[in-house]
């Protein structure tokens, strides 16, 4: 009995150590960001003082305010339009019998396999032909539809008993009433899961916005940060770069702490990244 207890304690201890190792990169970055810049190269726990100076300097050094606004607009834009287009398409796939349904369905499956993220070269051409280079719309446009969101919502909608529909129709309800009052409330958990995963995916997206934006007003935080860190790479500026990094991840970390359970469940639920 005692041996198993010791084993268990040892086991727990090792796991705690292991998880601690996992969070060291974050803790270290945070500790650098709050240090006076002469202390940057001192040990992990050798902290002589705390300062907000790095954040102030980073904020003045690069237009993080503009980056924030661009990021928020881009993420919201994608979320609203993608969820809307997905809800409509998912409803059609889940509940309507139409000509060519299987073919259209397969057309969408292909997008799961070839995501827009890898089509950077030709998609740049498309955006350029539309004359949309260096606009927020260019960043958003390829993500206004997502096969993944459609399939996930379709699964959810299929679980709604058909009788609900029919009953509502009998009473003369229009399709948007049926969708809005029956389907959307039932799909709430799926919609929240999608909002969290799609939202964080686009908050984090880098390559595509890098390619299609040129001016500060249209650049999201990720692109801004990369420019910021590559122009002030020298050791002395570690403090400022880590402060900039925290600007980028603070909203995510805060949201993650508040919605910890939903976040983990959402990623489990959707499997997107």
């Amino acid at each position: 009995m005692d041996v198993t207890k010791i084993k268990k304690a040892l086991n727990n201890g090792l796991m705690i150590l292991f998880s601690f190792i996992w969070i060291i990169p974050l803790l270290w970055s945070i500790s650098i960001a709050f240090r006076p810049s002469n202390d940057v190269f001192k040990g992990l726990f050798e902290i002589t003082g705390l300062t907000f100076q790095n954040f102030v300097e980073a904020w003045h050094e690069a237009p993080f305010g503009a980056y924030y606004i661009a990021t928020i607009l881009i993420v919201l834009g994608i979320l609203i339009v993608q969820l809307l287009s997905s809800v409509l398409a998912a409803y059609a796939f889940a509940r309507l019998e139409f000509y060519g349904k299987d073919v259209v369905f397969i057309l969408f499956i292909l997008q799961l396999m070839i995501p827009a993220d890898v089509l950077i070269a030709p998609n740049y051409q498309v955006i350029s032909d539309f004359g949309l280079i260096d606009t927020k719309l260019a960043v958003m446009l390829p993500y206004f539809a997502s096969a993944f969101s459609i399939f996930l919502l379709r699964q959810t909608f299929k679980q709604v008993p058909k009788e609900f529909d029919e009953a509502a129709r009998m009473e003369g309800a229009k399709w948007w009433h049926v969708l809005g009052r029956i389907y959307l409330p039932i799909a709430r958990p799926t919609l929240i899961a999608l909002a969290l995963t799609v939202g964080s995916f686009h908050w984090n997206n880098y390559l595509w916005p890098l390619i299609v934006t040129k001016s500060e007003a249209n650049r999201p935080l990720t692109v801004g940060l990369a420019i910021f860190s590559s122009t002030s790479e020298s050791g002395a500026n570690w403090a400022m770069v880590t402060a900039g990094m925290l600007f980028v991840i603070a909203p995510l970390i805060i949201a993650f702490i508040i919605f910890q359970k939903q976040f983990i469940n959402s990623f489990m639920h959707t499997g997107v990244k």
Binding site: A89, Y99, L141, P142, A145
Partner: peptide, 28 residues
């Protein structure tokens, strides 16, 4: 009517799919 409604619902997603998945693949 149902066919028309279905394609109307699918239209926004289909346009994006064609513009940013199929057309770019063919273009490549």
């Amino acid at each position: 009517r149902i066919n028309a409604a279905a394609y109307l619902f699918l239209l926004p997603a289909l346009i994006i799919l064609l513009l940013f998945t199929y057309y770019p693949m063919l273009l490549s």
